[in-house]
Design a protein around this nucleic acid. Structure first.
Lengths: 132, 132
DNA sequence: TATTGACTTCGAGTCGACTCGAAAGCGTAC
DNA sequence: GTACGCTTTCGAGTCGACTCGAAGTCAATA
């Protein structure tokens, strides 16, 4: 029999996403990840779709969206097109937050570079060395 | 008598830095901020130099340098030029971290924009609306 | 059959970073 | 002289986000 959809154990998903198995279960427990299919033993079988969704949620989390909001966003998947408006609002608000963070980082980068130059004036900028 | 150096109450510094008075005291307690001058009542008097230093430390904190490391960096001010090498290393490591964060944010921004476009294809990019 | 290793749940513990509140000191304003 | 508003210390509490461990199930292997 040819399986058209791959499935993955929790361990494999941990490797694929960079999360720990503990964190994956925790995220599911707090309804941040929708219910994952189980086999006869109760073992989780993640689909490719699950992994895609988890990866996107990880992007939101890594960029500091609070888990509450991620949960709300994840919950809306279940409501389909009806929930488009609210999902748009959530992502759009987070977009603004991302821009703020980039601003803060860019500003701090400049300040750090200034200090680095004062500490080791003879050095080339690190960005040059890094790209070599 | 003309005062050549301004001083500020903790409240004023809170307003100038965006921190709360509680947080300012907390930072001093954990040696993240060096000892601040006191008057006869034991009240803190922050100098312009203090404010400059606090502002820079806030930049590091906002860009996710752990307080432990910020404390180490702040501690090194006391050692003068002797500590230049270590301060350079700390800032240079954080510089790399900043670049990683910018990468993550840029990547997520692209994904979010992609989703936003799918949710509301008729909208112009938000960046255009924001700059109007 | 016994061990190994991957999986399960659930409650409790940890950790970083604040955040708060009680009790008290000081200086001006009425 | 007392009320107000600012300050102080210090210990304890909170909060978000994990992180861990105990106790148990299951399948495959020695």
């Amino acid at each position: 029999m040819i399986t058209l959809t791959n499935t993955y154990s929790i361990q494999q998903v941990a490797e694929l996403t960079g999360l720990t198995v503990h964190t994956l279960r925790y995220y599911e427990r707090i309804d941040l990840i929708p219910h994952i299919e189980r086999d006869d033993n109760g073992y989780r079988h993640y689909s490719d779709g699950d992994i895609g969704r988890i990866r996107f949620l990880c992007c939101l989390i890594r960029t500091k969206m609070p888990l509450d909001q991620v949960r709300r966003y994840a919950e809306l998947y279940a409501y389909g097109a009806e929930s488009d408006e609210e999902r748009f609002e959530i992502l759009n608000a987070h977009r603004a937050e991302i821009l703020r963070q980039i601003d803060a980082l860019t500003d701090t980068l400049a300040r750090v570079d200034y200090k680095l130059a004062k500490l080791h004036p003879q050095h080339e900028p690190e960005s040059v060395r890094e790209t070599v």
